[in-house]
Design a protein around this nucleic acid. Structure first.
Length: 510
RNA sequence: GCUGCCGUGGACAAAUUGGUUAAGUCGUUGCUCUUUCACAGCAAAGAUUGCGGGUUCGAGCCCCGUCGGCAGUACCA
């Protein structure tokens, strides 16, 4: 079995494209097949430099490694359609010679006018069997005239001559049988005026030449699959025609319609794997990677957008997905892009990652913020926070107070909990802490708890919130004693002193 | 407009292929734990399976109709 992912380098690879690539990859791995990457750059007007590199980098980040493709090699190359240009003309010619296609000389202006005229009558113009005898093409001209037009060097297209009154059957792995009446199909252009093939021709020719056995692509291709079947038939390749599987669309997080790049900007969520910087700010996007996602979580999340294993297992590594994946379990209806679920997956991955590994991943953002920390410190730090944050990038933001003094106190809680009359007692606590020898988490827990019970004359509820706010500024956070231990004795005592003064001031203002 | 696809709680989704009281996860709410938040555990609320007919002892699954959503309808992919 051989599958392919065939994106067009017209910009950043949309997350839906990543899912298509993933499903192709999973199926290949599951069945012991080959995963091919092919770049469909037949539209030079929409070509965007850098897009191809982006695609490759995005796939690699997800762990999806093509086995054949541009820059990788393989025995069916080249894998860039612009480099296979010479092939398509021959096949198009073959189509003309066998009577399955014809030359068309209709100009852009003529076609635009046709469309406008039809629209004026509330109809939609379609270049199909019903009108091709009235158009400017080799079907309506005699052979010499055609020859002369071709020789004149004026641009022309080659259109597929769709047969009339036939039922085109498509058997789709996820949708079963889909039928199209050939009279409904238009005479699609195969070769464009610039000598490049259209998607339809290039795709079918390359899939055949590259011995692709399964075509897994988005649902938006389902309507044109009938044309592709017709092409396989016209070429006499029916017996090796690949099996088709059309994936359900990915829907917007809210509302109707398929997920678009606009949704990302609008909702402040990523819809691309990696960030993309365009000259135009409105075409620049933040990626899942830069947002702080773990690639494993993204892959896990993506896999469930339109597929599920039929069991209750939700967490899958890429390797496990390869094992569990099956086309039969791909759903038919559109899958909602649920960002909450994506976050949930990421947090699950964070919690499952061991502290040493996590520390390595978090370190760059800690250093970027201008902080320094040794490995032990980093491991304790991430260990304390990992079940309280959802992204790698959240660690520094949430736990900044491990690296620098508290920036702001949660005043509401201070007003409620700080009793200036207790200040003397809290001064005693500072002194008590200053006198401690062993500042390990265990000892801090034990000794401070004992002090509260035996010497403070106050309850846990009166002391610990104050301790927490003085050391971290917030009521949210890890175990107070563990936090204190990691901060170190001197730092804790100094924060307590600063805190007491600040709390008194807050109370006085109120 | 035409063609095609899809339609199960707010979201995803399962249902041994027609067989009891329609799983589970996310989200929401509550409880437990507890010094907070989170995690974890437990629990609750939430569905006349888009709607209407039909076949059948029995329908989320089959048939017909209907409505809705989406996609395609380019010398773009």
């Amino acid at each position: 079995m051989r599958v392919r992912f065939a994106p067009s380098p017209t910009g950043a690879l949309h997350i839906g494209g990543v899912r298509t690539a993933l499903y192709n990859y999973l199926l290949a791995k599951k069945m012991g097949g080959t995963f091919v990457l092919r770049i469909e750059d037949t539209d030079q007007k929409r070509y965007v430099p850098g897009a191809e590199d982006y695609i490759l980098e995005a796939l690699r980040w997800c762990g999806i490694e093509p086995e054949e493709g541009p820059g990788i090699g393989g025995e069916y190359g080249p894998y860039r359609q612009s480099e296979r240009k010479h092939l398509y003309a021959d096949y198009a010619q073959q189509l003309v010679d066998s009577g399955n296609a014809y030359y068309a000389f209709d100009t852009d202006e003529e076609l635009t006018k046709m469309r406008a005229d039809y629209e004026a009558e509330k109809k939609v113009f379609k270049y199909d069997h019903s009108v091709r005898r009235q158009m400017n093409n080799s079907l309506t001209m005699d052979a010499d005239a055609v020859k002369a037009r071709l020789a004149s060097g004026e641009p022309y297209t080659i259109r597929l001559k769709v047969p009339t009154d036939e039922l085109v059957n498509i058997s789709d792995l996820v949708r079963d049988k889909v039928q199209f009446q050939s009279n409904e199909l238009d005479d699609k252009i195969m070769m464009k005026g610039d000598g490049m093939p259209t998607y339809h021709l290039a795709n079918v020719v390359d899939d055949h030449l590259m011995k692709i056995t399964h075509v897994i692509r988005g649902e938006e291709w389902l309507p044109s699959t009938a044309h592709h079947v017709l092409l396989y038939r016209a070429f006499g390749w029916e017996d090796t025609m690949p099996k088709f599987a059309h994936l359900p669309l990915i829907l917007k997080p809210t509302g109707k319609g398929k997920l678009s790049k606009r949704d990302g900007a609008k909702l402040g969520i990523p819809v691309f794997p990696l960030s993309w910087n365009d000259d135009k700010p409105e075409d620049s996007f933040v990626g899942f990677r830069e947002f702080g996602f773990d690639p494993g979580a993204v892959v896990n999340f993506l896999a469930f957008l339109g597929w599920n294993p039929g069991t209750e297992q939700e967490m899958f590594s890429l390797a496990e997905l390869c094992e569990a994946f099956s086309v039969e379990k791909i759903g038919k209806s559109g899958a909602r892009f649920d960002f909450d679920k994506a976050k949930w997956f990421n947090q699950q991955y964070l919690m499952a990652t061991d502290n040493a590994q996590l520390a390595k991943e978090v370190r760059p953002s800690v250093e970027a913020a201008g902080y320094t920390a040794d490995d032990d410190m980093m491991e304790s730090f991430v260990g304390m926070l990992k079940e309280r944050v959802t992204f790698i990038t959240d660690f520094v933001e949430t736990g900044y107070y491990f690296f620098e003094p508290v920036k702001a106190y949660e005043e509401k809680m201070i007003r409620k909990k700080w009793k200036p009359d207790n200040r003397a007692k809290f001064e005693e606590l500072s002194q008590f802490i200053t006198n401690m020898e062993d500042f390990s988490p265990e000892n801090v827990t034990e000794k401070v708890k004992a002090w509260i019970n035996e010497d403070s004359g106050m309850g846990f509820g009166a002391v610990l919130p104050i301790l927490r706010i003085a050391t971290s500024g917030t009521m949210k956070g890890p175990d107070v004693f563990a936090m204190m231990s990691l901060l170190g004795k001197e730092e804790v005592v100094s924060r307590l002193q600063k805190g007491y003064d600040a709390f008194d001031a807050i109370k006085n203002n109120a």
